[in-house]
Each structure stands twice: as structure tokens, then as C-alpha cells.
């Protein structure tokens, strides 16, 4: 499924390393089930935050957007837990983790 024009899928570099101006996206656990067709890398640009990336996914991936809008979703930027308004820089790995509440 094509992504909205504001998020461009990035070609995977042959080296396996992220190119410049790219952000790697990871949807952990059951979020992965809702993220089929989402490009693994997106183009970085100014003022990008996890909240803005979520909003950019809304049009083409409404079910994923709904899951990301649940309370207690965790976000990690390069393995550090951050908030929805954290600036996301070039070359970063951004992971979204669904809430896990049972016992």
C-alpha cells in the first residue's frame, strides 16, 4: 500500500545501515500486526516528533493510528523512552510499543 506523500519509503541501502536523512521505524509486538505495509524507514525532516509521525500514518493506516492512540503506548528513541513531543533526528531508530497491562 503506498504511503501518503508526506512519508516517503526509503530504499534500503545495500550496507544495511541507515542513510542520512532517514528514521527507522519499529512497531513492537502486536503493533506489528497493524503496521503491515508501513515503510520501515521514513525520510527525516525538520520538526518531526513521534506525535507527528503517528498523525502522518493516520490516513493510510487507520487501524495502526487507532492502536497508537491508546493510552500507555511507550515510545523509544534509540532505546531511550521518550514522550510524544520529543524531536526525532536523522538516523534515529524510533520504536512504538503497545501497552501491556495484565497480570
Amino acid at each position: 500500500m503506498p504511503l501518503s506523500c508526506s512519508i516517503k519509503p526509503a530504499a534500503s541501502p545495500a550496507t544495511g545501515l541507515l542513510g542520512l536523512n532517514m528514521i527507522k521505524l519499529l512497531f513492537f509486538g502486536r503493533l506489528g500486526d497493524f503496521a503491515e505495509g508501513v515503510a520501515p524507514n521514513i525520510e527525516a525532516r525538520a520538526d518531526l516528533t513521534p506525535a507527528k509521525i503517528r498523525d502522518l500514518l493516520a490516513a493510510d493506516h487507520p487501524a495502526l493510528f487507532a492502536e497508537l492512540s491508546q493510552p500507555q503506548v511507550l515510545i523509544s528513541l534509540n532505546q531511550m523512552i521518550v514522550g510524544w513531543e520529543q524531536p526525532v533526528f536523522d538516523g534515529a531508530e524510533l520504536a512504538f510499543l503497545p501497552p501491556v497491562t495484565g497480570g
Partner: peptide, 18 residues
């Protein structure tokens, strides 16, 4: 430190927090 496990993919993730 937060440890996450996904038994469906067999993946672990370790995250730090501030």
C-alpha cells in the same frame, strides 16, 4: 530499565528511561 518480550516473534527489547 524496561525489558519487553514478544513471544510471537521471539524478540526481546531493552529500553532505558530517564
Amino acid at each position: 530499565r524496561v525489558q519487553r518480550y514478544d513471544g510471537k516473534s521471539g524478540q526481546w527489547l531493552t529500553l532505558n528511561a530517564k
